[in-house]
């Protein structure tokens, strides 16, 4: 079995990787960082969104082997104390309901703000449109992103 070395939230890890191993299940079940969620397994909902080298990816569609030598960041590593501007805005806007999709939403939004610190509402909607929220918390997801972009 091949092994794969990469960093996760700044820490080096080496995992044994079956050929069919996905990054999602490696992060959740092997490493134990369960903030990244399983929603559809087909890249259709965005609940499993995390960052690979700063890019938001669907971890259910990312093979473990493909992240060799790369930097993986999950919701747990987005900030040291849960105080990323988006996380503060998420709390201020009281965004989550069931909360299950929210890690993916925040990781997707963090990619947007990294590239476009002051997005328009249209840019927010366009960027976030692939991340589903069954509770329908979209208005507060959008307003939290706007708040984070203002308050930094």
């Amino acid at each position: 079995m091949a092994s794969v070395a990469f960093t996760i939230n700044g820490q080096a890890v080496t995992l044994a990787a079956e050929p069919n191993a996905s990054l999602l299940w490696a992060v959740r079940e092997q490493i134990g960082l369960t903030g990244t969620k399983f929603g559809c397994g087909s890249g259709l909902c965005g609940a499993c969104t995390l960052h690979v080298n700063g890019e938001a990816v669907r971890s259910c569609q990312t093979s473990l082997q493909s992240v060799a030598g790369k930097r993986v960041t999950t919701i747990e590593g987005l900030s040291a104390n849960g105080d990323h501007p988006l996380q503060k805005a998420w709390i201020a806007e009281q965004t989550p309901q069931c909360g299950y999709c929210q890690s993916g939403q925040i990781m997707k939004a963090a990619e947007l703000l990294a590239k476009t610190p002051k997005p328009t509402r249209e840019q927010i909607v366009q960027h976030m449109d692939g991340n589903l929220c069954r509770c329908g918390a979209y208005p507060r997801i959008a307003s939290a992103i706007e708040r984070a972009s203002k308050e930094g």
Partner: peptide, 13 residues
């Protein structure tokens, strides 16, 4: 403030 919102915004729930 809802008691679960911080945990749900940080992946800890």
């Amino acid at each position: 403030t809802r008691v679960d919102v911080a945990a749900k915004s940080t992946g800890r729930e």
